[in-house]
Write a protein that binds this DNA or RNA. Structure first.
Length: 292
DNA sequence: AAAGCGTGGTC
DNA sequence: TGACCAAGCTT
């Protein structure tokens, strides 16, 4: 059973959160920055940082002119700092190769670093009003339930997931883009992972999962991400030291963050490889681009 | 194509 | 408490 676009869009008009990157005066650059920051990071943590970035770097060329270290420091504790580096790279490419204008074409967007299947279409739809399937984890869950009657989405498949959503999309551009935003919002506010609020759902009447009696998820178990004790945690601790100082720090200052020397050194080396840290001529360590 | 990559909030 | 979750991308 397809989701009624009119009903969903009406619900969105009434209930959507007033997020700054959804406002009419938000630029395509603002939308792109928000999409990158929102990858695996909750809205509440993104909002204040997004505002800082918009006033500090209102256009791609402004970000491109900043050093990597400044960008990483401004990224703060949003997590996955490689995103910040890639956004900086993307800004440089947009400034030099696209007249400082964020591309509206999906394939052009896909060619930029850090922009994948979801983000490219999110920018095309939300910044430029294009009719393209926008599939994130929220949308996959909503479709799994409302259309397929499953408790949750199985493993992602870009091709299949996009075809599912394409089939639901209104024919015209403007309502299609609005529908895409509404599907995501429904997944974020109502059709949530843990405790779906089906009583408040505007499309529960046509939901296949409801009709099937809300069966539990039957697919393969999802891999659980460990964090404590992993390289990710150690890299995070090292980076936190570098973020906290303007001056390069000695190796000794980094050694205190983690007891296992082998893991520590491996992580520091990987940060250097990833371009998230740099070693100065005198052997100390710093965020990249500020002391070389 | 499965695994790696940060961080913090929730129940 | 710790497992799960949050607008993914890259290799």
């Amino acid at each position: 059973m397809p989701i009624d676009a009119g009903i969903l869009i009406d619900w969105f008009d009434e209930r959507a959160r007033d997020l700054p990157w959804r406002r009419a005066d938000c630029t395509a650059w603002g939308v792109l920055v928000s999409e990158i920051m929102l990858q695996q990071t909750p809205v509440a943590r993104v909002e204040p940082i997004w505002h800082e970035w918009m006033s500090r770097w209102p256009v791609p060329s402004a970000l491109a002119a900043a050093s990597q270290g400044e960008v990483l420091r401004a990224w703060g504790k949003l997590g996955y700092p490689r995103r910040a580096l890639r956004l900086h790279e993307a800004a440089t490419a947009i400034a030099t190769g696209h007249d400082d204008i964020v591309p509206s074409d999906v394939d052009t967007l896909l060619a930029l670093p850090g922009i994948g299947a979801y983000t490219a279409r999110a920018v095309a739809a939300f910044a430029y009003g294009k009719r393209v399937p926008v599939v994130d984890t929220n949308v996959r869950r909503v479709v799994a339930r409302a259309v397929h009657g499953a408790g949750d989405a199985g493993p992602a498949s870009v091709t299949r997931d996009m075809a599912d959503v394409e089939a639901l999309l209104p024919a015209a551009e403007a309502p299609a883009a609005r529908f895409s935003a509404a599907l995501m919002e429904l997944g974020a506010l109502v059709c949530t992972a843990r405790t779906p609020r089906c009583a408040a759902c505007p499309v529960s009447g046509s939901c296949a999962w409801q009709r099937a009696g809300r069966p539990a998820y039957a697919g393969p178990a999802k891999a659980v991400q460990r964090y404590a004790g992993t390289d990710r945690q150690v890299r995070g601790l090292l980076l936190d030291v570098l973020r906290g100082t303007e001056e390069p720090v000695s190796k000794r200052r980094l050694d205190v963050v983690w007891p296992d020397a082998g893991q520590r050194d491996r992580c520091l080396a990987s940060l250097l490889t990833d371009g998230l840290a740099e070693q100065t001529a005198d052997g100390r360590f710093a965020l990249p681009g500020e002391h070389s």
